[in-house]
Nucleic acid binder design. Structure first.
Lengths: 139, 139
DNA sequence: CTAAAACCTAGAGTTCTCTCTAGGTCAAGC
DNA sequence: GCTTGACCTAGAGAGAACTCTAGGTTTTAG
């Protein structure tokens, strides 16, 4: 398989993308690729570098919380060729807003958590941590 | 139930916390509360305001990605009374770091996504969006 | 007093995203 | 040519976090 012009085995792709071979087969079943994956004479998958690029982008999407379903919609748009760039853009923009919102939410929660940390730190450092305390002074 | 000094029914707590009554029972089964929930003569749950406070904090934890298992560990620490404030602090600090890391990760992904958005925007606005393009120029 | 709304338990079902298994086949090195 | 490791398919299993169901009891409003 190493001789197919630039062709990569599933194991090699797994290595390069950090995805498991199981996950790669799963992604294919879910139609997450931009086109059918080639097969060797023996029936084994042969990926090409563009697939790896796409998977790396998918990793970004996944890491940023995009669902498989949404990635699938994006893949469908790309697969159906030029002409729907507006739709792709809309999808990306919406995801961008989602991520921004998530960051804002996390930042807000972080503040609350940090306050808790600060309070505990004072208690612990002062040794004043006697007496119940926690979710609310009083429990 | 409305007469138990400050006592709240499960429905009232659901309303105040945004959690479903199912979720509240589930949380209880999972030992996520700081103490046993009282029951009315008829066997219905009677919560008090401190429980609501705790649940609101739990919501913060959940929103920031803390697992039920971790919340449970924190609840256990609080339940087992004073003396383990260092452990609670450590748990909170670790969660704080986790959240910070997650924000960093999201921020990095956001940048990549924003670049994609910018590229698509150019393509769409210029009307130059002819020819395939997407995961990588060339597919 | 009675109907309706809210609550109860135990446990099954759901969704999402993989992961693992079983039972083979293919490919590469010695 | 044979062993070993990588790969194949179809489908079951996992775990996280709920959600829903069934069948029954308790509360509340009128």
């Amino acid at each position: 398989m190493t001789r197919n012009a630039g062709g990569l085995s599933i194991g090699q792709v797994a290595e390069r993308t950090g995805l498991s071979v199981h996950a790669l087969r799963f992604f294919e079943r879910e139609d997450l690729f931009l086109g059918p994956i080639r097969r060797s004479a023996g029936g084994q998958r042969v990926y090409d570098p563009a697939d790896v690029e796409w998977l790396l982008l998918c990793n970004r999407f996944r890491d940023s919380g995009m669902s498989i379903a949404t990635m699938k919609r994006f893949a469908e748009l790309v697969r159906s060729g030029p002409g729907n760039e507006r739709d792709r853009l809309a999808l990306l923009e919406e995801h961008e807003r989602t991520v921004q919102a998530r960051i804002a939410e996390l930042t807000a929660s972080l503040e609350v958590i940090h306050d808790k940390v600060a309070t505990y730190r004072r208690h612990v450092e002062d040794g004043t941590a006697t007496g119940l305390w926690s979710p609310t002074p009083g429990r």
